[in-house]
Amino acid sequence: MFRAIGWRRSSHFTAVSQALFVTFLWSTSWVLIKIGLVDIPALTFAGLRYSLAFLCLLPFFWRSKGTTELRQLNQSGWLRLIALGLIYYALTQGAQFVGLAYLPAVTVNVMLGFTSVLVALLGLGLLGERPSLWQWLGIFVALGGGLLYFYPVQIPQGQVVGFVAAAIGVLANAGAAVLGRSVNRVGQLRPLTVTTVSMGVGSGLLLIVGVATQGLPALSWQSWAIIGWLAVVNTAFAFTLWNVSLRTLSAMESSIINNTMAVQIPVLAVLFLGEQLNGREVLGLVVAIIGALLVQLGRKRKGST
């Protein structure tokens, strides 16, 4: 019995360590993207990253007989899967890269933190999921933190495009989260199949649009190294490791760990990108993170009133 208990503790510690490592990798992506955007056009950059990541996942998809799952999908299932790829990868990731091209990483991070707030509100109308009292509290706390961070609201002319792109990214990310929850509710497809197919659809369109509108400049080996690392390590490998950790972690634990990115990204941006935060912005960031965490953790369990 003691061996079993020890194994469980060890397994849980390993899962937590894996999830924390993945969130760190995802947080470093923001630093690498900001560095890469100096030489790589935003949409082309995003298209290259996720197209290469899709190619990395494809062999695992084939080996796990993912095509068998796809043959069982009806037209409605295919449409939802394609829509998820277009919204989450083509629109959300494309908008995020454009936003990072014009705005500090911390600012984009704060804006994307409102995704959980929008998901709660969209779930009310589209999925019939009523926010709990804790979620409503979290929504107001997050909004208050955002207002504190951006006060007074002054948008330099050169950053207008970035704010518009980041706002589109937040809306698209929230829509993709709701759509992804709807796809996973059906339970026909495994996460690997959903991710591989949707990533293939979205990244392909993103790369075509990027090359057509922004071109594909001659890139240095450093730029290709950043693209390759983001695709292979921070996307394909990190996604696989995250799903391994989810076999042990509860939904609440994974939400808390995932939320640590909201702290990691500003720290990395200050250390490696030279971005600066004053006291008011730090306080607003902390309040917004607390609000987003309340929204995530306050989700009602099935069967609760």
Rank of each mutant, 00 (worst) to 15 (best):
G169K: 01
L297P: 08
A288K: 01
W136S: 02
F54C: 11
Q188H: 11
Q296S: 13
W26G: 08
V267P: 01
L126P: 11
L216E: 07
A225T: 15
I139F: 05
G85A: 09
V194P: 02
G202M: 08
R80A: 13
Q159D: 13
L241K: 00
L246V: 07
M1H: 11
S27F: 09
L219H: 03
V194A: 01
P41G: 08
F24T: 15
S132R: 00
R80H: 14
Q72K: 07
F2P: 05
Q264A: 06
R71F: 10
W242Q: 04
L273P: 10
I290M: 04
N184Q: 12
S245K: 01
W78V: 14
G6E: 15
P217C: 10
N234C: 09
Q296K: 07
L293V: 15
G113D: 10
L271R: 03
S255G: 11
S17R: 02
S64C: 01
L43F: 14
N278K: 03
V164S: 01
L55Q: 06
A15I: 14
I155L: 02
L81Q: 09
G138S: 06
G138L: 05
R49S: 10
S182V: 14
V287R: 00
A225I: 10
V194Q: 05
N184I: 11
W62G: 00
V263Y: 10
L283N: 02
R301L: 15
V117P: 00
E281A: 13
A142M: 09
Q159V: 06
V211P: 04
A142E: 14
L79H: 10
V170P: 09
F13I: 13
S10A: 14
V141R: 00
N278F: 12
G113L: 04
L241W: 05
P217A: 10
I208A: 12
T44C: 01
T248S: 03
S76W: 15
I87F: 09
Q154C: 01
I82N: 06
Q93N: 14
T14N: 01
T115W: 06
V98K: 02
L73C: 12
I5V: 14
A231F: 02
G47H: 06
F140Q: 00
T23F: 02
L103A: 07
R8K: 03
Q159A: 05
L70V: 14
A288P: 06
V164H: 00
V270D: 03
S51Y: 11
Q214G: 07
